[in-house]
Design a protein around this nucleic acid. Structure first.
Length: 695
RNA sequence: GCGCCUGUAGCUCAGUUGGAUAGAGCAGCGGAUUUCUAAUCCGCCGGUCGCAGGUUCGAGUCCUGCCAGGCGCGCCA
């Protein structure tokens, strides 16, 4: 009855050689040997140097490295990097502050030596000061600026990405639509999470395979088919001018309406009042026994009705015909699914959603069956007297689950066992991620448990990337396609786009009317997608369809706006002749730049606190991407982009870029701004959001 | 009844393997613009981190119990 809810290859082999190129000999982040390191690598060397200088107690040579990681001090003026003394203090049973003090002294002594360790391993370390249990390190601003700008300009649209491929292949399954209805807001969250997660894993250096598993069979499709046969009057999406998925979705709603009418008549005939167990009526009840009684009554009535309903009987008959390969039924099924796919393709294309592989439940639904036999042989499963087969999940601290019905047909869990095996057979990936709503948490626990029982070693490499539901405010019910309280994806995208278009026209910064449509689309999606991705996945999101989505504050458009303004600054600079095309380098093929040619920029001029804040935020980007990928969560990246955006807004509000005190400073600031634009564009892309040049 | 998730400012949310003084946005109030785009910036206001214990040098973060909300507990998918 309830369809699989909201389940919601490409090869990219790249070795980025940019970081191995020789840096300008004049300045920049050159460590000895002239090799420019990635920011993460440089920091790793800094940590190595620091550990070497740790103040060991008498007779100790080993330094514990566990748990020591370089972090940022809470305030910029305290320094650029912070090394905690806790782990050392703990290992040596000493006071952390005391260790930090000695450690800082040892570092300062090292810095004073011409052949010091710090100087050899990392350029630009200026000072080390103990502050409580931490040692705060100060880096020469020019070195930092040169290093960061060098990174961004060299890596272009790969800035923020891992510099070396991991060689690991990760599969991400997401979207998982049902072919009986269009995509709604719940699917949007799934799709955006799935797309973004895939991008992040790619950026972390993995090869990613994007997979869709379509629920294209089952009783729910038969309902749409039946409604179409009965009341469709031979119309088609083409003849009614309707998007295919909406057309079929309408049939599904139609079936539900007719079924409700049937139910009302059924209830009237038996003299029962279904409103006594409506959601509202149950909410008001305080008597728990009464509540239970009502719920039981509701369930009993529904069961009775569904068993007696002629419409349901017909739908079930249609399902049997489908399973028996009845040509006429299969033909109608193909036709209607075809309509739906046409609609899906349009929505997916609009969202920028793509897949390397499509699995269809109609093709894989019986795959797990052979595993049942094997499970019985190995003792992972057992057979009940009635013939049904069960998995011994109790041995893993769970409840045993049915994997084969008494009548010999498979269940959802069995199907997923088969699909999981098929996936690993097809791609041999190292990890398999399922982006599916939290209402299926238990299902995936069971699935992975059963895979383990069956001895599949890949069970440990499967992960359910769970996310919370999208709920409507109290009193507005639930998102349900059947009852029309869904928030349709297409409608929603159109609505937000309209708001965006209005703002663009008010702003008047887009002279070309033909371009407005595309920009409105980018901004509308930016608002929606960042709204969805900002929140940690496991949390549910309350959505009020009556409130328009915000464009101000911590929003996608705010990030896009900063990007657009930077593009605007560059345009102004070129138009005013303050810089020329000859000053620039850009590569259209890699979404690279534009940047000023690095030999025409002196990063050492970027000494203002607001500029340094910005450089620091830029430098954190690679770490954030890595963390986001590790945690299967785009939210940290969303937060980071907003941070970067605000840091930029503060900087350019306070300091003029093009009209800076000197042409040299203007160029340095412009380069900084262009680097920010690149970082924002890259980050947004990982969140599946595009960045317009003007808005 | 059992299991999982959530609970942080009036609202919506961040808060890395436990670590420096718990941060943003919105709303409210007060300021900033003959603009390199005000989809902006600055300031103010706002907190017993659901409650109570515990672990330790240190807890929003870990453990136990309780309270509140959500989801799940089918031979449905």
């Amino acid at each position: 009855m309830r369809p699989r809810p909201k389940r919601c290859r490409r090869r990219r082999s790249w070795v980025d050689c940019a970081d191995r190129t020789l840096a300008s000999p004049r300045r920049g982040p050159t460590a000895q040997g002239g090799i420019v390191l990635g920011i993460r690598e440089a920091r790793a060397r800094l940590l190595t140097a620091c550990l070497e200088l740790a103040p060991r107690p008498e007779g100790v040579t080993e330094v514990p490295t566990d748990g020591i990681a370089i972090t940022r001090p809470p305030k910029p003026e305290m320094g650029d990097w912070a090394v905690p003394a806790f782990p050392l203090a703990k290992a040596w049973r000493r006071n952390p502050a005391e260790v930090a003090k000695q450690w800082a002294e040892s570092m300062r002594a090292d810095l004073a030596r011409p052949d010091g360790v710090l100087g050899a391993l990392c350029a630009g370390v200026r000072d080390a000061q103990a502050a409580g249990p931490y040692v705060n390190l100060t880096i020469d601003p020019a070195t930092t600026a040169g290093s960061v700008l060098g990174q961004v300009t060299r890596r272009g649209d790969r800035f923020g990405w891992a510099t070396v491929p991991t060689g690991e292949t990760v599969m991400v399954e997401y979207s998982g639509p049902n072919t009986n209805k269009p995509l709604h807001l719940g699917h949007l969250r799934n799709n955006v999470l799935g797309m973004s997660l895939s991008n992040l894993l790619e950026a972390a250096g993995h090869r990613v395979i994007r997979v869709n598993l379509v629920n294209d069979r089952g009783i729910h499709i038969c309902k749409s088919m039946l409604a179409y046969q009965r009341w469709g009057e031979g119309t088609t999406p083409a003849s009614s001018g309707e998007k295919g998925d909406h057309f079929v979705g309408r049939m599904y709603v139609l079936f539900d309406q007719k079924l409700k009418e049937e139910m009302a008549a059924f209830a009237a005939a038996r003299d029962v009042d279904p409103s006594t167990w409506s959601r509202a009526a149950l909410k008001e009840l305080t008597d728990k026994d009464e509540l239970k009684r009502r719920e039981a009554a509701a369930e009993a009535f529904e069961r009775e009705f569904l068993a007696a309903s002629p419409l349901m009987a017909e739908a079930r008959a249609l399902l049997r015909l489908w399973e028996a390969d009845d040509p006429e039924t299969r033909a109608l099924w193909s036709t209607m699914n075809g309509w739906v796919y046409e609609g899906f393709r349009a929505t997916y294309a609009r969202l920028g959603c793509r897949f390397d592989k499509w699995y269809y439940e109609s093709e894989v639904w019986q795959l797990g069956k052979s595993e049942v036999e094997r499970g019985l042989e190995t003792g992972a499963f057992y057979r009940n007297p009635d013939g049904s087969v069960w998995a011994r999940l109790e041995s893993l601290g769970m409840q045993d689950r049915c994997v084969l019905r008494a009548d010999g047909t498979t269940v959802y869990l069995t199907q997923d066992i088969g699909v999981a095996m098929q996936k690993f057979r097809d791609y041999g990936m190292d990890r398999s991620i399922y982006v599916v709503g939290s209402e299926q948490d238990a299902h995936f626990k069971n699935l992975f448990g059963v895979l383990k029982l069956l001895g599949h070693t890949f069970a440990d490499r499967c992960h359910h990337a769970s996310y919370g539901l999208i709920t409507l405010p109290a009193g507005m019910g639930k998102l349900k396609s059947r009852e029309g309280t869904k928030v349709d994806s297409d409608d929603l995208l159109e609505l937000i786009k309209g708001d965006a278009r209005q703002k663009i026209e008010e702003g008047g910064y887009c002279e070309d009317p033909a371009a407005i449509d595309g920009i409105a689309e980018m901004i509308g999606q930016g608002a929606l997608k960042l709204f969805l991705l900002q929140v940690s996945a496991e949390k549910s999101i309350q959505w009020n369809p009556l409130e328009t989505i915000a464009f101000n504050g911590d929003t996608g458009p705010a990030v896009q706006y900063s990007h657009a303004r930077i593009c605007g600054i560059l345009r102004k600079g070129l138009a005013a002749g303050l810089i020329t095309e000859d000053d620039l380098e850009r590569s259209a093929t890699r979404g690279f730049g534009p940047f000023l040619k690095s030999e025409r920029v002196d990063p050492g001029l970027l000494v203002e606190p607001l500029e340094r804040d910005l450089l620091r935020a830029l430098a954190d980007t690679e770490d954030v991407v890595q963390t986001a990928a590790e945690r299967y969560s785009p939210a940290p990246l969303a937060a980071h982009l907003l941070e970067l955006t605000k840091a930029f807004a503060r900087m350019y509000h306070e300091h003029e870029v093009l009209r800076a005190a000197s042409p040299e400073l203007a160029r340095a600031r412009l380069q900084l701004s262009l680097a920010v634009a690149q970082a924002l564009r890259n980050g947004l892309a990982l969140l599946t959001i595009e960045a317009p040049d003007r808005m």
